[in-house]
Structure formats: C-alpha cells, structure tokens
Measured scan of single mutants.
Amino acid sequence: LEELEQFAKTFKQRRIKLGFTQGDVGLAMGKLYGNDFSQTTISRFEALNLSFKNMCKLKPLLEKWLNDAE
C-alpha cells in the first residue's frame, strides 16, 4: 500500500512536470493501450480514492505511460 501511495504521488508530480493534464493521460492511454480512462479515474488514482484492486490494476499501465511519455 505504501508503495502504491508513493507511486501515485510521484506519478502526479512527473505528469505535471511533463505538462500533461489528467484528461491527456486518460486519452493517451486509450490510444496507446486500448484502455480508455476518464480524467476522473486518473484524478481518483492520484488522490488514492480508488479501491486497492483498481489501484493495482492501473499502476502498471500508468508506469508504462509515464516511461513512454518521458
């Protein structure tokens, strides 16, 4: 859980630094990986307001997006 919290915090900082909005991330993930995510979902991930199971599902996809974006 602590690792997920740290990743969510780091993800948000890096996303902002790269100049992407939460909506941008959701759209890009849909185009790149075929998984559409709403701005709300990205927001809830960053705020740790998703279930643990959903957080765990999203984390590898967001890590991949972040690596591709950088």
Rank of each mutant, 00 (worst) to 15 (best):
L1M: 15
L1E: 05
E2S: 08
E2I: 10
E3G: 04
E3C: 03
E3P: 01
E3D: 13
L4M: 11
E5R: 10
E5A: 11
E5Y: 07
Q6R: 15
Q6W: 08
F7K: 00
A8L: 03
A8I: 12
A8W: 01
A8T: 13
K9M: 06
K9F: 07
T10M: 08
T10G: 09
T10H: 14
F11G: 00
F11A: 04
F11P: 00
F11H: 00
F11T: 02
K12R: 14
K12C: 09
K12A: 13
K12V: 08
K12M: 07
K12D: 00
K12H: 06
K12N: 05
Q13T: 14
Q13I: 05
Q13A: 11
Q13P: 04
Q13R: 08
R14D: 05
R14F: 03
R14S: 08
R14L: 06
R15C: 01
R15T: 00
R15H: 01
I16C: 02
I16R: 04
K17G: 10
L18W: 03
L18I: 03
L18F: 04
G19A: 02
G19M: 02
G19H: 01
F20Q: 09
F20M: 10
F20L: 07
F20A: 10
T21G: 05
T21H: 04
T21D: 04
T21A: 04
Q22R: 12
Q22C: 15
Q22N: 05
G23Q: 11
G23H: 14
G23K: 15
G23C: 07
D24T: 06
D24S: 06
D24I: 03
D24V: 03
D24N: 06
D24G: 06
V25W: 01
V25G: 01
V25I: 06
G26H: 06
G26F: 06
G26K: 06
G26E: 11
G26W: 08
G26D: 08
G26P: 03
G26A: 10
L27K: 08
L27N: 05
L27P: 03
L27V: 13
A28Y: 09
A28E: 02
M29F: 04
M29G: 02
M29D: 01
M29K: 01
M29R: 00
M29Q: 02
G30E: 11
G30T: 10
G30D: 06
G30F: 14
G30Y: 13
K31W: 03
K31I: 02
L32T: 13
L32A: 12
Y33G: 06
Y33S: 09
G34L: 04
G34C: 11
G34M: 06
G34E: 12
G34Y: 04
N35V: 08
N35H: 15
N35G: 15
D36A: 08
D36K: 10
D36V: 10
D36Q: 10
D36T: 11
F37Q: 03
S38Q: 10
S38K: 12
S38E: 10
S38P: 09
S38R: 08
S38N: 10
Q39G: 13
Q39N: 08
Q39V: 10
Q39W: 12
Q39R: 13
Q39C: 09
T40S: 12
T40E: 02
T40D: 04
T40L: 13
T40A: 12
T40Q: 14
T41R: 06
T41L: 11
T41I: 07
T41Y: 08
I42G: 00
I42R: 00
S43P: 10
S43H: 07
S43Q: 14
S43W: 06
S43F: 06
R44A: 14
R44N: 04
R44G: 13
R44L: 11
R44H: 10
F45Y: 05
F45Q: 00
F45E: 00
F45M: 05
E46V: 00
E46N: 01
E46M: 00
E46K: 01
E46A: 00
E46R: 01
A47K: 11
L48R: 13
L48C: 13
L48Q: 13
L48Y: 08
N49T: 15
N49E: 15
N49M: 06
L50Y: 10
L50F: 14
L50P: 01
L50R: 01
S51E: 13
S51W: 00
S51Q: 06
S51T: 10
S51F: 01
F52E: 10
F52D: 13
F52R: 13
K53R: 14
K53D: 10
K53E: 15
K53Y: 05
K53S: 12
K53N: 15
N54P: 05
N54T: 12
N54G: 11
N54R: 13
N54F: 11
M55L: 12
M55N: 02
C56V: 12
C56L: 11
C56S: 15
C56F: 14
K57A: 10
K57E: 12
K57T: 13
L58Y: 05
L58I: 10
L58D: 02
L58F: 11
K59E: 03
K59V: 08
K59D: 01
P60M: 07
P60C: 08
L61Y: 15
L61T: 11
L61G: 06
L61W: 09
L62W: 00
L62Q: 00
L62H: 00
E63K: 05
E63S: 06
K64M: 09
K64T: 09
K64Q: 12
W65I: 01
W65P: 01
W65H: 02
W65D: 00
L66R: 01
L66A: 09
D68R: 11
D68W: 06
A69C: 13
A69D: 03
A69F: 08
A69L: 07
A69E: 14
A69Q: 15
E70S: 15
